[in-house]
């Protein structure tokens, strides 16, 4: 499978990474190279094999559905690039 420039542009957008138009051909080529390496997986007979979800056969633990912490708004906002009036601030998203 080789990735063309349009696909590279689409993948970059899906990943929310700005890529300059001039850089797309090189990116497409690089991604194609990596995907070619992955094509080896097609040689494996995987008939009847379940995709692995967890490597250790253990049941996830459950806990009571109760509030165990909170009241730490200042600490949660402490690292925000832009926090105002107790909220994370972002550019306007609705007109």
């Amino acid at each position: 499978m080789s990735i063309d420039i349009d696909t590279a542009r689409r993948v970059a957008h899906l990943a929310r990474i700005a890529v300059q138009e001039d850089d797309l051909p090189a990116l497409a080529q690089e991604l194609s190279g990596i995907l070619t390496f992955m094509e080896q997986l097609n040689e494996v007979d995987v008939t009847g094999i379940e995709p692995m979800t967890g490597v250790t056969p253990m049941r996830l633990k459950r806990r009571a559905d109760v509030v165990t912490d909170g009241e730490m708004q200042d600490r949660i906002l402490a690292n925000a690039p832009d926090a105002r009036e107790g909220f994370f601030a972002v550019p306007k998203v609705v007109e």
């Binding site: 992955m38 997986l41 097609n42 494996v44 995987v46 094999i49 379940e50 995709p51 692995m52 979800t53 490597v55």
Partner: peptide, 10 residues
């Protein structure tokens, strides 16, 4: 497919 191959490796 990769996750199936992973199961085979294990």
């Amino acid at each position: 497919r990769a996750r199936k191959v992973r199961a085979l490796i294990k």
